[in-house]
Amino acid sequence: MEQQTAGVPAFSELDGWGLARRRVVRALALVPTAVGGSFALGACSAHDAPGPDGRPLLALSAAQARTLEAVAEAVAPTAGGFPSAREAEVMRRFDEELSFVSPSIRDDLKAALGVLEYLPPLYGHFGRFSHLDRSARQALLQQMCSSRVELLRAIGGNVKILVQFFYFAHPKTWAATGYDGPFGRLPERMDDQRRWYAEHTGASA
């Protein structure tokens, strides 16, 4: 059950699912391959199942979280002592950030993940994005980023940019980059929203 704070509307009341659906339908017009009923992004509850890391999700559905993690695994370097996308908590941070932005941004990005997941057949791949091997995922992302179709560029570009933002901002990546950390190496001071997210996803704050 979604938790509700006194005086504060629940997530479900605030999410503009109608908007997300319309955008996905529009995007679907670009995906002529039969994806049928399984492409019912709007029908997923954002809270139906835990994320790939086993913890509850607040903004993403479990399916969207899997797609996002598949992007992050494709984008993150594997050599040179870099941590994995899971170690750098990219999917988790994405869910957290999305939990606090305006509904229109949240919906667009969730819809983007839905399109991404079911797009591969358009580019000649069999199977959904999260089922492709890493190099096929990389190739598809690159094709999307330089696509002639504005919507596909926007989807590929924005998801990739955010994934890389959350990955390289994570302290576990710093040793491999030579970044010496925030000035004075101060510890993080969690704000109300980080604590709130941690409480609602069962993590220790």
Binding site: A76, P77, G80, F82
Partner: peptide, 23 residues
């Protein structure tokens, strides 16, 4: 800072790693 710089790198995987390891 590294997050924003990394996000603006239009490559991925090990090519991204090669750039970012020389931050």
């Amino acid at each position: 800072q590294p997050g924003l710089l990394g996000s603006m790198m239009p490559v991925m995987g090990d090519e991204l790693g090669q750039w970012m390891s020389q931050l």
